[in-house]
């Protein structure tokens, strides 16, 4: 057992945890968090693979590392968009639910004037 293998296994477990949370947690914000944990698990797996590619004096393969940075930024953007969608849903009805028999929503609310 060495460091990269250990963290690779850790990453596999994280993907599992995140997937379970994504399915089971009813609140959409929790689903977003679960999704982020899946994402970080995938990143970590990728990072462990990058670490295994250490050569010519570099601590790891720089190509996966560069892709990881891209991935983290894109994951943040996606999270921000998801959160914005969620908040808009909340503004519409005051409730946030993904249940099929959603309670009747009130009329569209207008934002206050500045």
């Amino acid at each position: 057992m060495n460091g990269p293998t250990l963290f690779g296994l850790c990453a596999a477990a994280l993907v599992g945890f995140g997937l379970y949370g994504l399915i089971v947690n009813p609140q959409p914000l929790r689903k977003i968090i679960g999704f982020n944990i899946i994402g970080s698990g995938v990143f970590l797996l990728f990072g462990a693979i990058a670490r295994r590619g250490a050569a010519v004096g570099m601590g790891g393969d720089p190509v996966p590392q560069a892709l990881l940075i891209t991935g983290i930024v894109v994951a943040f953007s996606a999270t921000a968009l998801a959160v914005a969608l969620l908040l808009r849903l909340f503004d519409e009805g005051g409730l946030v639910t993904l249940a099929s028999e959603a309670p009747p929503t009130k009329t569209t609310a207008d934002p206050p004037d500045a």
Binding site: D91, G93, G94, L95, K106, T107, A109, P111, P112
Partner: peptide, 10 residues
């Protein structure tokens, strides 16, 4: 609250 809806449901 900024939105009337919040008062009822929220």
């Amino acid at each position: 609250l900024s939105t009337p809806t919040y008062q009822i449901v929220g």
